[in-house]
Structures are given as C-alpha cells and as structure tokens.
Design a protein around this nucleic acid. Structure first.
Lengths: 151, 151
DNA sequence: TATATAGTCTATAGTACTAGTATACTTTTG
DNA sequence: CAAAAGTATACTAGTACTATAGACTATATA
C-alpha cells in the first residue's frame, strides 16, 4: 500500500506552494530550485513531477527571469486526491473496486467476492480522506501543530 | 495504493480455505490445485504464496496422498492485516507513519510535515479495516450477500 | 515396498516500474 | 544579446513483480 516517491515529492511540493508567503495571504510563486532545496528533492526529478502536474492543469508556470510555478486554483480547491491520481494513478487497492478506472479482476464471482467487498471499504476510506482534504486543510493543520509546539 | 498480485491471490486463497465445507462447520483442507482452479490462479505461483503463508505460521499443511493446506488457527483468529503484511509488507503508505517498520522519510521537519499528518490518517483508516476484519468476518459477509441475491 | 500423490525448495527469466540523469531546447526579462 | 527559468525527451541502473521450471521430500495405500 505504497505511495511512490513521485507521489510523495509531488504532494510535498504542492503543499509548499500552498503555504502563504511571509507577508501575504495569497499563495506564492516558487522556483523549482527553491522547492527542491527546501524539501531535499533532486531538482531534475522534481522538474518532471511539476511538469506533469502542470500538464494535468493543477499548476501554472511562468517562464524566464523571475518565473516559477504557482497553483492553478486556490489551495481550497485542490485536493490531495487530485494530485495523487495524477502522479500515482488510481487510489483503489485493486482494479475491481476502482470508480475512476474499473477493470474486472478475473475472480470467479465478482458480486460475492469477499476480498472485493473489503477492498471496497478500504478504497472508500482512502478516498474519503484524500478527496476531502484540500491543500488549504493541510497548511491549516500544519500551522495548528506548529502553534501547539510553541513555534 | 496497490495490492500486489501475490497479496490478492494469497488473500483470496485464505478466504477460500476459511469457507466452511459443504456438510461441516469446520474449515476444510484444500489442495493447491483445487484453489488455483477455483480462483483462476497459476498453480506454480500459488504454491509459492501458500508456502510463504505457511512459513509465516498462518497455514499448516499435510504432505502426501490426501494432503493439502488448512488454516493454522480458526478463521476468527486470522485477520486480513496479518495476511497482507506477510505478502506485501507494511500497510503504511509512507515509511514515516509505519508503526511496524518506521523509518524517517527525510523531510525537513517531520513533526510539522502536513503530508505525514494526512498519511497517518490514511494508515489508521486502512489498518482499522484490515486488522479488524477476520477471515470469518469475510465469509460471513459473503454469505450475507449471497442470501440477499437469493442464491 | 512400490507408486502415485501432494507439498517443498531454489533458481531463473521476462517485463515493467522506479527514481533518477542528461541534454538540448524555448521563453522571458533586462 | 545574455542570463534565468521552464519544457521536452531520451536514457539508464536497479529493483520488484509475476510468474515458470525442475528436482526433491513426505505420506498413504495397494
């Protein structure tokens, strides 16, 4: 039940982009290098990931001097589920319970397959979290933890 | 967030072994071939999987004529989580939230890492299902579905 | 005790995926 | 025009996945 490195880095980068800048309430524009240094990610690998996210419509970018990446929509409107699916594919642990990309798993009787029933529950649990957590929710939660730690 | 074929086949086989035989309440002994035919799994691949499960103490076996595999404990005492971990390793989507095999994920500040907080929730949701669902629960549920379909 | 049955064990092979590297663009600003 | 910054592909080393093969060991029973 693993999140790939692409997924992990992509999610971390998106969260970083969602964090409000020092003196502003609006999400910031950041360069690949800034993010890769801050999150300890290979710059070249991160380039690919951000490009994928851009082509999927979750990020916008500006080329040239003073350019960088920024969120395509507000942090409230981008969920972790959207990001995850772009980078790691379907959320479902097994194809026969995937809503977005169903495929039969070849078991003798899908309707009464016990594994399918349970994995459906697992899918729903994961989707329930990822699709109902926005980037804004994440940064809010980070702030709450920081405050509770007195930082 | 994928279940491997090994995990899928292993879980399906264990569920099959947990299904009460026609005229008895006790779990049955089944041969590899029976299971592989019924569940449409390559026999040779299934051999390996059942062996792994046996070496992990979840199955017992009897060699020779009239032999086969049977559950090491009652279906009530074997959870899907136990089977999953033997075949697919840790349940956690990311190492830094794994209880059974924790490892730092190298992010700058683990304590306030938003991704870690959310993935912790995901882990708990999955574990909550897999560790609280026994093979007996699965077969019971299958029966309920069969009945509701009038079979 | 011979024989068929059934599980055990180890090796290996093809394929796909992962996690990057490398390189050569294109666009924008000053 | 030069430098900064993103775009686009191609490539690669390593690992994991999904098996397949073959020889071996234990058991029942005729």
């Amino acid at each position: 039940m693993r999140l790939s490195k692409r997924g992990e880095y992509g999610l971390r980068a998106m969260i970083a982009l969602a964090e409000p800048a020092e003196n502003s309430d609006t999400p910031q524009m950041m360069q690949i290098k800034e993010i890769s240094q801050r999150e300890q990610i290979s710059t070249k690998f991160l380039e690919q990931i951000l490009l994928t996210l851009k082509n999927a419509g979750l990020l916008h970018s500006k080329m040239g001097v003073g350019g960088g990446y920024y969120l395509a929509r507000s942090a409230k409107e981008i969920t972790l589920g959207q990001i995850f699916r772009v980078l790691d594919g379907p959320v479902a642990p097994i194809k026969c319970v995937s809503q977005m990309s169903y495929e039969s798993c070849g078991c003798p009787d899908e309707e009464t397959c016990g594994l399918r029933l349970v994995m459906g529950d697992v899918r729903n649990a994961i989707v329930g979290i990822l699709d109902n957590t926005s980037l804004a929710d994440v940064t809010k939660r980070q702030d709450a933890v920081r405050k509770s730690l007195g930082r």
